[in-house]
Nucleic acid binder design. Structure first.
Lengths: 248, 248
DNA sequence: GGGCATAGGACCACGATGCGGAACAGTACA
DNA sequence: TGTACTGTTCCGCATCGTGGTCCTATGCCC
């Protein structure tokens, strides 16, 4: 099938811009095309937002359109976008990182994470997937599983992520019962050394769990002695607000 | 100036792919063009790497070319690439984050940072610019300034980033003399609360400072009591090796 | 297994669009 | 002021992109 020359030329020009070419003549030299051809292409690419002029001058650089194309719209991004302002507010209130995860089979995938205002903080886990039992969000989601799903999960040996990770089925069942009563879950140094976290479920108006919101921080400062209950309350309240208040 | 229709169409197709369209017919519907036009465009975009087929089938997704265009080649990236394996080895050896910064006027710009193997670590500062006096890499670079440059910098009030930041010119001059003797610099909680760091210069074969390599970590565990000297030696040695050993 | 519906892809006549040379305006520098 | 260079615009021309058509492949249903 014959290709479209104009599109090939446009990408050659984008290559040159990306590689540091500056003005029309420079780019024309690099791609071996007449200046008028390059000027017309640049004008079109600029209209499209694929390139932009540096400080309104006559030097070109890659524009915002290409990064936008690289971030494909994903159904879960919509949910992330709704949750995001709540996570940001919670991060400011607690001074720690916050995040949101959804079920991925019998694991949990971190959809989005908001950085702590502190320089020392937990690293970014966005996009990563973990077994449900090792972190607070996963435990919250497990509390919603049917008896059959739970039995199946607990019927095989569980992975310990630290020496503190709870892996005994009996203990896990007791923990889940407690989570169902409390509406939140604290996990200390089970997911990773030096990290504590608390999570609560985000539910839709029908009461189904969409995912779990969590806050986590270095154990040496989070939680402060005696603060566990109000922190858990705050996370639980924030989770409840996700689909109750308009996001803007 | 008239635009190039084919390029506009190509981007409309990229938009549709990015938005989740799957096959030729789907995309043709979304962009309101004949299938043959869309098929030809997709074939060209596929040749260019801008789109690719999902699992070799007939569904399309955004290809690797666009992210490549978004990362412009920068002269400093070459230097980063050379430094990177050294930073990675140092991060493994120390168990803390490492990084490399270069002079940017009288400030320091962090070119690259390598994560610590620890879950609790210093956040990523890559790309950020700081006044020279507030961090170990900047102080190392200041030690290379001429008397005139130093006088000019110290003639205006300096910004304190924490209550520990050294901002008195006399103290700074003494510190710089010490750094010239030692070949490294330790900074504790001056750049940010809870962070300590040590840096040493990376020099070219002519002895000129290209930038400064550093390691930093949460003060509660870095450095361990009594380890400051061997850590500083390790950073200084690693910095010396950057342009001495082949990078691979 | 056969029929049907749909999608993908190749082909080709045609004219619209893109090409590129030339000229001009603007800017920087000696 | 003159020169050199860059960016922009115009326009005649023909090449390239268009889009309708048709064929093949695939999946689904009976």
């Amino acid at each position: 099938m014959p290709t479209v020359q104009s599109v090939e030329r446009a990408f050659a020009i984008l290559d040159a811009v990306s590689a540091g070419a500056s003005g029309v003549t420079d780019i024309a030299d690099r791609v071996d095309l007449p200046k008028s051809t390059v000027a017309r292409m640049l004008s079109t690419l600029e209209d499209l937002g694929a390139v932009e002029r540096v400080d309104g001058g006559s030097d070109y650089q890659i524009g915002p359109r290409l990064p936008q194309l690289c971030r494909p719209v994903d159904a879960t991004l919509h949910l992330s976008a709704i949750v995001q302002p709540h996570l940001e507010r919670l991060a400011m209130q607690l001074g720690e990182s916050t995040g949101f995860g959804i079920a991925s089979g019998s694991a949990v995938r971190v959809l989005t994470q908001v950085e702590s205002p502190n320089a020392v903080q937990v690293r970014d886990y966005t996009g990563e997937v973990f077994p449900a039992h090792v972190g607070a969000p996963g435990v919250c989601l497990m509390a919603e599983w049917s008896q059959r799903e739970l039995d199946q999960y607990l019927s095989r040996p569980l992975t310990a992520y630290t020496e503190h990770t709870m892996v005994q089925p009996g203990q896990i069942r007791e923990r889940l019962a407690q989570v169902r009563r409390d509406g939140f879950c604290w996990v200390h140094e089970e997911f990773a050394d030096g990290i504590s976290s608390v999570a609560a479920l985000v539910r839709d108006p029908q009461g189904r769990a969409l995912g779990a919101m969590h806050a986590h921080g270095p154990t040496y400062r989070f939680p402060v002695e005696g603060d566990k209950m109000w922190i858990a309350d705050l996370v639980r309240q924030t989770a409840r607000q996700v689909l109750a208040a308009p996001s803007s």
